[in-house]
Write a protein that binds this DNA or RNA. Sequence first.
DNA 1: ATTAGGG
DNA 2: CCCTAAT
Length: 500
Amino acid sequence: MLKSIILQEDIFDSFVFLYEMFQGSNNGDVRGQNTLSTSEEFLLDAKYADDTFKLDHGPCKDSYLGNVALQTQSPGIHKRDSASEILDLSSVGDPVFKCMNNHSSLHDHIAVEEVNEAFKNMSEYETSVMDSKWLQQHEIFGLKNYFEMENGLSLMKFDLTTIEHEGKTSSNIDYAASTTEPVIRTLNNENISGNHQVKRKRLTGSELLKTMNSDVRKVELFSFDGEDKAEPLVTQKRSRKPPRRYIEESLDYSSKSSNRKCGMAYRRSKDQFLHVKSQKQKWQNEFQAVQVFPQEDSFDGNCIQVPFDLPMEREHSKKNESFLVKDAEDCKDNRLLCPVDKLDVEALSAESQEDVSEDECMARSYAKGGGRRKRHISWTPSEVVKLVEGVSQCGVGRWTEIKRLLFSSSSHRTSVDLKDKWRNLLRASCTQLQIKEKVENGRKQATNHIPESVLWRVRELAIMHPYPRESRSKVSCTAPAVSSFTAATDNTLVPLSTAV
DNA sequence: ATTAGGG
DNA sequence: CCCTAAT
C-alpha cells in the first residue's frame, strides 16, 4: 500500500492536509473524525494513483514543462515516469519543502521533520496507513510528485551529463534497478520495479535498450516568480530511464548503415546502396514497437514533433471549411506552420528548381523531426501532370521507369509514391466525374485541385492501361460514366496528343 | 529490387 | 504515406 501512496500525485496536498490538521487540532485529538477521513483519503488516493499508473497516465495536459531547457542532445524527459523517476533525495542533508504556490497554507519552508512528527502523532493510524520509518527515510518523496502537480509553476532544469555505461548490453531490468536504486530499493517494490518495469519493457522492446547509455541527470528545481529569475531548490543526481525519443535516436546512431533517421538520406540511399531487407524490417518492427508506446512524452526536448501531425489535421479542417481555394493555393494548404515549409512551398510552386530546394527543405525538416514518417507533401498540379504524362508514356505499373524519366530530379516521390498517387488520381477522377455527371450545375467543383483536363487524361489512361486489379473494380464501377462520356466525346483513346 | 494492394 | 506480401 505504501508504494501506492508513493505514486500518488497529490501526496504533497496530503502532506499539507495532515500538517494543517496537525496544527489545527493541536497535537491532541488527531484521531478524531478528521484523521479517519484522512486515512481514507490516503487510501482512496493511493488506489486511484495505482490505477492511473497502470493506465500509464496518458498524455499530459499541462504545459509548464515546455520551458524545460535541455542542455544536451537528449531527446527529452518523460514528465511522468512514476515510480522509476522518484527522486533519490534520501541523501539530502536537511530536506525542506518549499512552497512555490502562494495559495497553499504551507508557505515558505517547512521542515520535513515537522510533517513527520505530525504523522508520528497519529499513533493509531501510522501503522495502518503510514510507515513512519519509511517516512523518515523518504520524507521528500512527495517533492517529486510536487514537481508534477497540476498547479506546478515550477520549472525543471535538467543538466544532463551522459555517462558512458560500461556494460552496454545491460538488460532493461538491470537498468531499471540501477535507475531507481536508492529509493525504490527500500520500498518493498516488487510491484513497481517488477511489474511495471516489465510492462514497460514489453512496450518499448528490450532490444532497444541494449545500446542505451545511461545518463545521469542533475535535477534542479526552480521556482520562478513571474520572471525568469529562478532559485535552485534541490540539486540531485539521478539516473533515469531513457525516453522514447532517446531510444530512437540511439537506435539510429547505433546502426551505421541506417538511414532511417533522415528520410532524405534514406530515400536516396535506397536508390544507390544495397538494401539489407532483414535489417530494415527489423528496424521497422522496432520502430513500430516504439510507436505503440503510449504517448507519455508530453514534450520531447529537441524534437519538434508537432508539425508532423498537425498539418494533416489542418489540411482536413481546411478542406472542409474553405474549399474554394484556387489551385495555386491548395498545394500549400497543409504547410502553413513553419517558415521552412513556406520556403518549401515556394520552391515547389516554382517548378524549375524544385529539386534543390526541396531536398534542402526535406533534409532540414527531417533533421528536425527525426523522420518517423515522411512529411506529407502535397502533389502539385505540375507533378500530377508529369505523372500522367509518364503513365501515358511508359504505361501503368512501370513506376520506376516513370520515376527515372520524369521524377529523377525530385528525390522524394519514390516509385511507390507515384503508384499511390496514380491510384488516388484514379479514384479522384472517378468520383469527381461521377459527381460532375450527377450534379451538372453544381457550383464550382473545387473539391479537386487537379485540373479537370488532367483528370480526363487520367481516365483515358486508365481505360487504355487498366490498373492491375483493385482499381479494376473501381474503374468498372465508374466505367459506365466514362463510357458514356467517351461516347459523347470525339476521341478518347488518343490521350497522348491531348496536352494539358 | 519492384510492384500491387491494404491500411 | 506506410507496410507488407508476392514476384
